[in-house]
């Protein structure tokens, strides 16, 4: 569905992404992992067309319109002075013309997160956690074919992290392809079909969980992550 071929992006003198190739298949949850500064967000921004790669090729097959993509950015923020439902419908309307369906979906997701009663409240009156939920809804409200969720668990307590996990699983079951970037290894390893560990802009490890376990002779992703990156990525 999405292929990156030898993609490179340099900021001044630092290569944020350096010759990265990867493939995301239709209907899977693909996890993009790596320590801070590994190049995950730059990769995500290139996939979404927010920034252009300096070289290499990045393409969707079949070609994907912007409106079929969903995005939860790591750099989080939402309009504060407008009501919840109005804001969601506006953000949804930038990607979809089907107002009635957007309204249905907004009701569904607000119900799912226990926020339907607060649909007419200004977002600034919600707690930080609830604001994060609104942003998650904004990313999937228009039922995208391909959703990029950059750090979807950040700012949530363990109960809500589980809730987000089950929502992502449901979205995949509904046919959505999900590219996930996160630091919560235990959650990600239960969720994702395939993984790519980035380090200094390059692929460090990739494959299914089984393949990675075989390659590294370690049981879980958390161990792999710690042992690999606490020594500067040379394991």
């Amino acid at each position: 569905m999405l292929a990156l071929e030898n993609v490179r992006k340099v900021y001044q003198t630092v290569a944020a992404v350096d010759g990265l190739s990867m493939e995301v298949r239709k209907g899977e949850i693909f996890a993009l992992l790596g320590p801070n500064g590994a190049g995950k967000t730059t990769t995500v921004r290139m996939i979404l067309g927010i920034i252009e790669p300096d070289s290499g090729r990045l393409h969707f097959d079949p070609p994907m319109e912007r409106s079929r993509l969903g995005y939860l950015p790591e750099e989080r923020g939402i309009y504060q002075d407008t009501p919840v439902a109005e804001t969601l419908l506006y953000l949804g309307s930038l990607r979809s013309d089907n107002k009635a369906r957007l309204k249905e979906q907004a009701k569904f997701w607000l119900d799912r997160f226990g926020l339907y009663d607060r649909r007419n409240d200004k977002i600034s009156t919600l707690s930080k956690g609830n604001q994060q939920k609104i942003q998650f809804i904004a990313a999937v409200l228009h039922e995208p074919e391909f959703a990029v969720l950059d750090e979807p668990y950040s700012g949530f307590d363990p109960i809500n992290q589980e809730l987000i996990s089950s929502c992502i699983t449901e979205l995949r079951a509904g046919g959505m392809t999900v590219l996930l970037s996160a630091h919560q290894m235990q959650l990600v390893e239960r969720l994702a079909d395939r993984f790519l560990l980035l380090h200094q802009g390059k692929e460090f490890l990739s494959g299914t969980l089984e393949e990675i376990r075989t390659k590294t002779a370690r049981e879980d992703l958390h161990d792999i992550f710690i042992s690999s990156f606490s020594t500067g990525g040379t394991a």
């Binding site: 950015p73 923020g77 939402i78 309009y79 930038l94 990607r95």
Partner: peptide
């Protein structure tokens, strides 16, 4: 305000 509230990225990914 949009810059300070970090809304930008969400919108420029859509339009």
């Amino acid at each position: 305000g949009e810059k300070q509230q970090r809304i930008t990225e969400q919108v420029v990914a859509a339009i």
